[in-house]
Design a binder for these strands. Sequence first.
RNA 1: GCGGGCGUGGUGGAAUUGGUAGACACGCAAGACUUAAAAUCUUGUUCCUGUAUAGGAGUGCCGGUUCGAUUCCGGCCGCCCGCACCA
Length: 909
Amino acid sequence: MTNRYNAAEVEPRWQKIWDEADVFRANNKGDKKFYALEMFPYPSGRIHMGHVRNYAMGDVVARYKKAQGFDVLHPMGWDAFGMPAENAAKENGGHPKDWTYDNIAAMKAPLKRLGFALDWSREFATCDEAYYKQQQAIFLKFWEKGLVYRKTAKVNWDPVDNTVLANEQVIDGKGWRSGAVVEQRDMDQWFFKITEYAEELLEGLDTLERWPEKVRTMQANWIGKSEGLQMRFEFVSSSRDKVFYNKELKNLGSSIPVNPSQKEYTEFLETALSLSPSYEGVDLNVVWESVLNGIEIFTTRPDTLYGASFIALSPDHPLIKKIAINNAKLEAFRAECAKLGTTEEAIATAPKLGFDTGLKVKHPFVAGKTLPVWIANFVLMGYGTGAIFGCPAHDQRDLDFARKYNLDVTPVVLPDGEDAATYDIGTEAYTGEGTLFNSDFLNEFNKADGISAAIAKIQDMKLGQGVTNYRLRDWGVSRQRYWGCPIPVIHCEDCGVLPVPEADLPVALPYDNIDLTIPGNPLDRHPTFKHVDCHKCGKAARRETDTLDTFADSSWYFARFAGGQGKGLPDDAPFDKDMASQWMPVDQYVGGVEHAVLHLLYARFFTRGLRDCGLIDLPSGEPFAGLFTQGMVTHAVFTDEDGQYVMPADIIEDGNQLLHIETKKIITQGDVIKMSKSKKNVVDPNDIIEGYGADVARWFVLSDSPPERDVEWTESGVVGAWRFSKKIWNLVEGANKEFSPMSLANDASGDALELRKFAHKALEKITIGIEAFRFNTSVAQIYELTNALSKYKIQDAARAESLGILIRTIAPFMPHLAEECWSVLGGDGLVYHAPWPKLDAAMLVDDNITLPLQVNGKRRSELSIPKDMAKDDIEALALSDEAVIRAIGDGTVRKVIIVPGRIVNIVVS
RNA sequence: GCGGGCGUGGUGGAAUUGGUAGACACGCAAGACUUAAAAUCUUGUUCCUGUAUAGGAGUGCCGGUUCGAUUCCGGCCGCCCGCACCA
């Protein structure tokens, strides 16, 4: 008679035992440390299946490493600042702070109920004053170190969230959270100088061997390093006049000197400005500099300079802004460019548009040769210098442009095997390797040598120099929001922009008088927050009202977890330096791939900043040594007859159709997509825990699908997982309890030996699966071992040993069931503390093996032989096999290939 | 357009130095137990050759290398993800 396994009773009981014994607290970091971390959750109010999968994976690793004898740190906390709290307050009243802490309380219970081996003693929320106080201290340290600065910049403005977004947070021209089309605005902003580390962040990627290739590639592309030449094309002397001496000015009776000094020129422009209000804001020095310096361009292909046929400026180029004034045609052109749309996709697919400014510049190498200066909509102001030289023969965009506007196309790179006399560029630019020609001193060079030679020459001529360009921009962190970390800065009219003295930290968020129903920043209109006396001169000053981008919060939380040893979370430092330095880096980080360039890049930057401010000893600056990006949990979408989405829990199967439980409407099943509230295809983990238990939920999300891929939630799959847990329990209940689960049956023979072999082979594969993050294969092996235990009905030490292996290997996956089984079987202490089963290598080899026999690569038969049989004997046996003889027929045996232990292939013709 | 990944039964997937394709699970079918159902257990389940101790085909398609290819190479087709005129 077996007792039914009751997860609802068993699971909380073990959780209580773990809790009371405080077994998951990471106290000592010995020689073998392992820091397991999953991306901490935003406290939205409910746990979803994505969390379950994410934390189940981390928990498998944490528990497995513990069993392997590591000191494991596996903490948990809350990424608690952010817009949803403000939105909730706006929609439902209440306060963002209350909403957030209520949600944390609501989520902590189910998270604990899932039985993760988490060290809750280090728990914190990023909205805790103690946390953001330290973040403000870090901000000031970064400022001191030159990693923070302030400038007026064109920023991405999200009109729905009413805030600024970083470049990384603009996806396809839309805000990453709101989805609103992002506008450009000029604003005073705080920036983190992430570009300072562009090279290091790029090079560091090569050292991250345990990161997915995909994420590394994405980050490398985002940093976007390119090496090339920045140089200027000087204006042809007479054309300089044309820049500013346009018809309109002439008509107005102004005159420009032929070779003006800067003073004369400035006077001329001032006259011009006074004649037209649209000149307002023009910086005369900038204009003058462009006149003196010519047009700065950036290129990665200086080897093709002899093929240059035009210069193209971005429509946003500052020089254009000057010359566009009073030029109706040019204004019309710029308007036309703007009309094509501002989303990234629209820009990318827009037709090439050009405008000839009439200006001319000198070719640097060819005396007397001039190039026309065009404005082209495909040139981006945000990259390089906002200006290029066009070499149509060897750049597709330039070629499209040249063909459209009838500009010269001169090939200068000859592909191998082509004849210089006949080589012709049609509609496809040649961008590959080749030999330079039509290029005077560069002739006969290959691409790489040509590039070096051209750069050297330009440097000699003092027209430019070799430079490295990055796409990466500095990280704008000012947010005009309430629910974030206040930027610890004071603006004093006399003393300027001042850091808040460290002793005055934290700059705490006010709780009262926060009205989120009015657009704009509540801190800015708060009655007292803004008003502060300057600590330097004592006069009334203004407190900074912007808060930090919430991605800053998640850029160092892992270090605070690590440096919270002993005295708890420190209040006088972001973290204990020694402890953080010992635990860091995170050995295994697990989270969603959606953070590939956001959080994961910011954290790498921040950690370097912490290192360079002397806050942590971590020479590499890499916070995450191992990264795993897990797939999503998906579910079918259901709609009723009216096309309304229906929750899976509200559906009942009736014959061969699905009906709504209450309305009885017929339900149609749609696509399988990521669980989302709006599509109502969500399954609440709480329901699963109640119905089947935490172990079943954990087991299911780890079964079947490879962890990096999406897993489809299905009712039948859950039932299967539940059946399996019962099967394990039945095996344990029916076991002979005389033997300890730590038994070793070294003298086993017969069935007992077979079972032992099976168990150890399974153990090996289960272990490999966990190590390689292929939990689905570990799960499959656990099934096999379970099936073997059902098959071999023996009751002896070999069975106890195999069962002991089974229970210890399921422990990381289904810890409660494992504890219960371990206890019933008489295991010592907690299975959590039990060492990982020791692999008996002798059990992995068989004395007798089955060797497949192939004839011409087709399997015809098999041979059961001792594993070390001589090749000659194998050949003889193979050739005398009935099926083999039949397959050979009247053919002639040409060759017999014997791969010991693997296969025999007989080649017949 | 560029970069990366993927394509295997009805389904999820396994087969990581080129060596028995389809492990394991879900589903389905048959059977046992039961008054019955549920649960549980047993057996079968890539397709085709009406029967199968037999044979043929088969890992998106076409070709190549090899004694042997899901695996390596070339060319297509399809799907997913990322970047998107980055000079």
